[in-house]
Structure formats: structure tokens, C-alpha cells
Design a protein around this nucleic acid. Structure first.
Length: 680
DNA sequence: AGCACGCCGACT
DNA sequence: GTCGGCGTGCTC
């Protein structure tokens, strides 16, 4: 049974952790375009794959070790990621050393993993679109201030120059960055172009969305975020891909949305850590956005009140254009920021006497106060005062947090829940005690301290039900005097005009952290939270409670502001050859068996890298991770550093090529994190 | 990631 | 004697 050799073969990426493409024979006469999905046989089963390339079979192809299996079905007529996205994604797979098929499919809506053609869905969408006409409903345009006009003018100028550079828009909270975005987008919108806007977390930026909706009227907007159903996500994605959604707003993964007429990318809050994916394909949406804009030769604008040190450095070295907005329209005074030493006082509700007085006065003036504490739950520890027993998570090397409302112990690392023990499991003592405090306790104690005041708590626990967050935000926006208690969730994207006092608790841990990025993040968080105070025409006051009021970096931040603070941190980074003065990758390993197993594996990785590269690759570790055990896995890490990006990437390439032979790899899960930002 | 293949303990 | 444990290795 001899067969003619296939004329063409397809190189296909499947959504599995394979670092290679697989070759399949194509039926006679078929030449699918790169980016179309195919159904292929895969081991004993079938898989959807993406065609990356189609090649003619070499005429006398005798050295091929395989008899190629045939492509079973071609699922699409047009490519899903277009040629440009395909190129970007392949580049990203190489840069982040992540399996190419997983990278490609992580950029597609989940619904497209099923081997179903999408032709009919498209048809429906396009028919729906035919009825909509959407004039620019610019009835809510505000007059720009002189500073904003100057800023806009600079950006427009830069966007006519070649070669292009990314633009860093460093504007203090309330300075009107959104107004600048809108003015940049408007002419593109009118010209039928598309714009991609990446935001940290869409549920938390309702005001930005509202502003866009007002500005662009009923223009078709595609929103892509984690709360969407698979169907809605596919719909938004198709609308963007068809070009009919001109405004595309989304979180991190929206950076992969196809947009044939893309003319501008905006990254809002470019410093935000949520732009970096923290598992699987660990990409940074800002960095990929810069790459995408560069490949398309379109402008990219990154806005923030607290630039990432990397971005600030890029601005200083002229890789980025840099423009500032220093004024808050309608406000004359900057918030008054003060450090408060907690050590001399016995704290009540975690607050110093001065803080308590400040809250009382604020309420008396009919204004709002916010107490920021980045810790959920009632208390971060439950222990027995008589024998010293403590409620630890049995799956993690961590204490369990006590939640009063649900009367449960919850591990914030693995989400394990346990009923609160009635007596000490060790000595039967019926009186267990909590230690420390979270937002839940803060809410309670503030309420009893100010019995007549309304206390609103906003954190993940108090807003998990649908509509709950909106209701709470509406209460706050009614501008009645109240006390707002909350975590991270309050730090970004909200505008509370009657909020004039912000108290920030418990920052001491960040000041002592071994993570070299902890101070940068603390600085960003403090400035962002402080930016909530004193909007509209009311002066704001920010109180920073700490047991280390003499910390030099805190003084730098409070005394001179974010930029000199960041500059100081950059100088430290330079001394240590840390990013952006060097390049890093973190190898993580975990084992259910023991810490030793994870460490030993990384020791072998380390040795492989030395013998394979022999370069001046710096190695820090292997060391146990900050959280040594999580969800029953012992975790260790090895930090790699180099002054040459190419050397680091060559080393990672070597590691991947030889990883199958590494001793001690059985029972160990491991991963590569390029440009790590979180060392937990 | 799945899945099959393969070599060691307690059961119809 | 077999059912099945998950260690190992492969997927064109």
C-alpha cells in the first residue's frame, strides 16, 4: 500500500506543555493560513491546534523519522490570531520560555478550544452590528487645564516623530490622566481606528469605564475581564477582531485581543503588579504591550501616579518619552502627609490617640475618613494563652486567620477552612485568644468607638456577593459622613469627593521585608492610597502609622515625594545590579515530599547552568521560598541574574533543553519566571 | 496536560 | 493468579 508523499505539511501548536511544534500531513490541495485552528490526532486522542506554518515537503524527504499523521479537519477559514499577533505570541513564548501552544491558546477565548467552527457566530454578530450607528457623543467633554493641554500637545508631537518611543505619563492622582487618554483616542475613533486600553482590574475601575461610556456615547465597546462568561468573552473578542468594537478595554490578558485597525495602546496604572501574570505563562502585559506597539509601529501611552522603577529608568535613559501632570484641577493644596510613631501609645482599635481624634474631627465636619489596612479577616492569629498552641494551617507553613462573621479559621494561602475550635486542642483550655487585627475587627472596634457613625468595610470578604460592592460604593459616594475601612481594593480607581482623611495602618512588615521590591510597592501603595484624600475642593490629610518613623526611605517618601524616593531605590538597585540594571529569572520548584527534594533539584539546575553556560551568571540560592510550604507543597527557589539579557536567556534555553535529564526531577514541579516581580 | 506503558502489593 | 498503585516518558 504505497501512498504519494503529502505535498504540504502543517506545523501545528497544541495547547500542551510542549516546547516544539508538531508536523502533520495536509490533505491534497489544502493550505490553511497560519493562525487557523485544525483538529489533529494527538497520541491516543485528538486535539485542537493552531497552524503556525505550512511547508512544502522536501522532494526527497528521507531523513524524517515520522510517518506524519494527517490533519483531520480545518476548523477556520480566517486566522484567529492574525499574522501580527502570531508573531507577537511566538516572540513571547521564546522570551518567557513557555510552551508555545500554551501561550497561543492562553491568548484565545476558552470557547475556541473546542473543535467547533465559528462561522455562524460571526454572522450573527455582524448582523447585529448593522443596525447600530454611533456618532461621537462628546457632550460631557471637560475643558482641559493649561497643564493638560500642554501634556496632550507634547504627546501628539511625539506621536508624529520617528522612531517612535513609548510614552510615560506620570500624573498625580486626580490630575486628569483619563482626560488625556480620551483626547488621544477621540480623533482615532472618528477615523474608524481601534484603541486598546489595559486597566488593572476592571471591576475596580467603574469610574474610568463610566467616563469612557459617556465620552463615546453608545459606540460599540468591548470589555474583557475575568468575570465574563466564556460566551460573553468570545463575543467581545469577536467584536474586537471584526473591527467593529473600536474601544477595547480589558485587564492583563486583553493585551492579546486581535484588533485589525489598532492605532493606540493605553496602559493605565502601568506600575500595577496585576499586569504580571503570576502562574503558568508569566507574562507582563505592559512589556508585551510595548512590544506589540513597536511591532505595529503605533503609539503607546502608559499612565500612572507612581511609575515602576523600570519605567522611570527607561524615561531617564530616553527609551521612553516622559511627561508629567502635577496639578489637580479644582484643588489647591496637596494632602498633608504625616508619620505617626505608634510605639509610645497603647493603641485602641489599632489606632493612635491622634488618629482617633482625627477621625472624630473629620466626622464632626461632615466629612469621610478612610482607614486602610491590608489584611482581611478579624485576626491573623488564634492561640491559647495557657499552653501557647496556635492555629496553623495543616497544609501551609502559615497561621490561619480567624474570621468572626463566619466564625471560621481560614488559610489565606490555600483557602482551607476550619470551624473555630471550642477549646485548645492541646490543653483543652476553653478560652482561646486572638492576636493582631484585620479589617473585620477594625470595622467592629471602630463602630463601638464611634457608635453614631456609619462604618463601611470594603474588602474581598465583604464584597463577594454580586452587587454588594456597588451598593457600598454608592453609600460612600452619597458623601454622608462615614468611616471607610478596607484593603488594597480601596487603593485604586475610586473617587470619593468627601473623603478628607486617610489613615494607613501596619506598614511595618514592608519596611522589614527581604524582598527588594517591597519598598517600591509600599511607596506606590502609600501614594495611591494617599491620593484618595482631599478631592474636589477639600484639603486632605494622610496619617501614616508606623513603629519605624525614623526609617530613611519613609522620610524620603513623606518629605520629598515619590520621584526622589524612587530615585533613591534605583540607586540601590544599581549598586546591586538588580533590575533595571541587570536581568533576572526565578526558577521555582516544589515537592510534596520534602523541602530537601525541592532544594536538591534546584541545586542540580544550578550546577547544570554553571557547566552549560560557564558565564558570569549570578545565582542566588537555592533557598526555601518565603512561604516554605503551601497547599502541601514544599517550595524553593533559585534566582538567576545577569548583566546581559542574552546570556540569561541562553542559560534558560540550555536548562529547558537538558531538563529532561536532570537528576532529582521526579516528583518535583518547577517553572521559569522571567523578569520576576513577586518572590513569594 | 493527558494518557499508556510498566513493574510491585492485597484481593475477587 | 489478577486489579491497580502512580513513576516515567511521549505526543508529529
Amino acid at each position: 500500500m504505497s501512498q504519494d508523499p503529502p505535498r504540504y505539511i502543517a506545523l501545528v501548536a497544541v495547547p500542551r506543555p510542549l516546547h516544539t511544534l508538531l508536523s502533520y500531513a495536509l490533505p491534497d490541495g489544502e493550505q490553511p493560513v497560519a493562525g487557523t485552528r485544525v483538529l489533529v490526532p494527538f497520541g491516543s486522542q485528538h486535539s485542537v491546534g493552531l497552524v503556525i506554518r505550512v511547508q512544502a515537503t522536501p522532494p526527497n524527504d528521507t531523513d524524517s523519522p515520522f510517518t506524519l499523521k494527517p490533519v483531520e479537519a480545518i476548523l477556520d477559514v480566517t486566522p484567529l490570531p492574525d499574522a501580527h499577533l502570531l508573531k507577537l505570541l511566538q516572540w513571547a513564548a521564546g522570551y518567557y520560555h513557555h510552551p508555545v501552544g500554551e501561550v497561543l491558546f492562553s491568548a484565545l477565548p476558552i470557547a475556541l478550544r473546542k473543535p467547533k467552527p465559528l462561522s455562524n457566530r460571526l454572522q450573527k454578530l455582524l448582523l447585529a452590528h448593522a443596525a447600530v450607528t454611533s456618532p461621537l457623543a462628546d457632550t460631557h467633554a471637560l475643558q482641559l487645564t493649561a497643564e493638560q493641554q500642554q501634556c496632550l500637545h507634547s504627546i501628539e508631537q511625539w506621536n508624529t516623530q520617528t522612531p517612535r518611543r513609548p510614552i510615560l505619563l506620570h500624573g498625580i492622582t486626580g490630575s486628569g490622566k483619563t482626560e488625556i487618554y480620551l483626547r488621544l483616542i477621540a480623533p482615532l475613533f472618528a477615523a474608524g481606528k481601534q484603541v486598546l486600553i489595559i486597566v488593572p482590574e476592571i471591576g475596580l475601575t467603574p469610574q474610568l469605564l463610566l467616563r469612557f461610556a459617556r465620552f463615546f456615547g453608545d459606540a460599540p465597546m468591548a470589555c474583557l475581564h475575568s468575570a465574563l462568561s466564556d460566551g460573553d468573552r468570545l463575543k467581545a473578542w469577536l467584536q474586537a477582531r471584526s473591527g467593529m468594537a473600536q474601544i477595547i478595554i480589558g485587564t492583563r490578558s486583553a493585551i492579546f485581543t486581535p484588533a485589525p485597525n489598532l492605532a493606540l495602546i493605553v496602559i493605565d496604572e502601568e506600575h500595577d503588579a496585576s499586569l504580571k501574570q503570576q502562574e503558568g505563562f508569566r507574562y507582563h502585559a505592559r512589556d508585551l504591550a510595548i512590544k506589540r506597539a513597536q511591532m505595529l509601529d503605533i503609539p503607546i501611552v502608559m499612565g500612572t501616579a507612581t511609575p515602576a522603577l523600570e519605567s522611570l529608568y527607561n524615561a531617564q535613559t530616553k527609551r521612553f518619552h516622559y511627561v508629567r501632570l502635577n496639578q489637580r484641577p479644582g484643588t489647591t493644596r496637596k494632602p498633608d502627609l504625616q508619620l505617626q510613631d505608634t510605639r509610645p501609645f497603647e493603641l485602641q482599635a489599632g489606632l493612635t490617640p491622634q488618629s482617633l481624634i482625627a477621625i472624630r474631627d473629620t466626622l464632626a465636619r461632615g466629612e469621610q475618613a478612610m482607614v486602610f489596612l491590608n489584611r482581611r479577616g478579624f485576626a491573623p492569629a488564634l492561640y491559647c494563652p495557657s499552653c501557647g498552641w496556635q492555629a496553623n494551617c495543616e497544609h501551609c507553613s502559615a497561621k490561619m486567620t480567624w474570621h468572626a462573621r463566619r466564625n471560621k479559621l481560614i488559610c489565606h494561602h490555600c483557602s482551607t477552612e476550619q470551624p473555630t475550635p471550642l477549646r485548645c486542642p492541646q490543653c483543652q483550655n476553653p478560652k482561646l485568644t486572638t492576636q493582631g487585627q484585620g479589617t473585620e475587627r477594625l470595622e467592629l472596634t471602630l463602630q463601638s468607638h464611634y457608635p453614631d457613625a456609619v462604618v463601611v468595610r470594603i474588602d474581598r470578604d465583604s464584597t463577594s456577593r454580586k452587587g454588594e460592592l456597588d451598593a457600598k460604593l454608592a453609600t460612600v459616594r452619597s458623601n454622608d459622613p462615614l468611616i471607610l475601612v478596607g484593603t488594597q481594593m480601596l487603593a485604586k480607581g475610586h473617587d470619593f469627593p468627601n473623603l478628607t482623611l486617610v489613615i494607613i495602618l501596619d506598614i511595618d512588615q514592608s519596611l522589614l521585608s527581604t524582598d527588594y521590591r517591597a519598598l517600591e510597592r509600599l511607596g506606590q501603595l502609600l501614594v495611591q492610597v494617599a491620593g484618595r484624600a482631599g478631592r474636589a475642593d477639600k484639603a486632605g490629610r494622610v496619617i501614616l502609622q508606623t513603629s519605624q518613623p525614623d526609617h530613611p526611605m519613609l522620610h524620603q517618601l513623606v518629605g520629598h515625594g515619590y520621584t526622589p524616593f524612587a530615585q533613591q531605590l534605583l540607586e540601590d538597585r544599581k549598586r546591586w545590579h538588580f533590575p533595571p540594571f541587570g536581568y533576572q529569572a526565578l526558577i521555582r520548584a516544589s515537592s510534596t515530599a520534602s523541602m530537601e527534594k525541592a532544594l536538591q533539584f534546584l541545586e542540580h539546575v544550578s550546577q547544570l547552568l554553571v557547566s552549560a553556560t560557564g558565564t558570569d551568571l549570578q545565582r542566588l540560592g537555592p533557598i526555601p521560598a518565603l512561604l516554605e510550604k503551601r497547599a502541601n507543597r514544599y517550595r524553593a527557589q533559585l534566582l538567576l541574574g545577569s548583566q546581559q539579557r542574552a546570556a540569561l536567556h541562553a542559560a534558560l534555553q540550555q536548562l529547558l533543553q537538558q531538563s529532561a535529564k536532570l537528576p532529582g526531577r521526579s516528583g518535583v514541579r518547577w517553572s521559569i519566571d522571567v523578569d520576576p516581580i513577586d518572590f513569594s
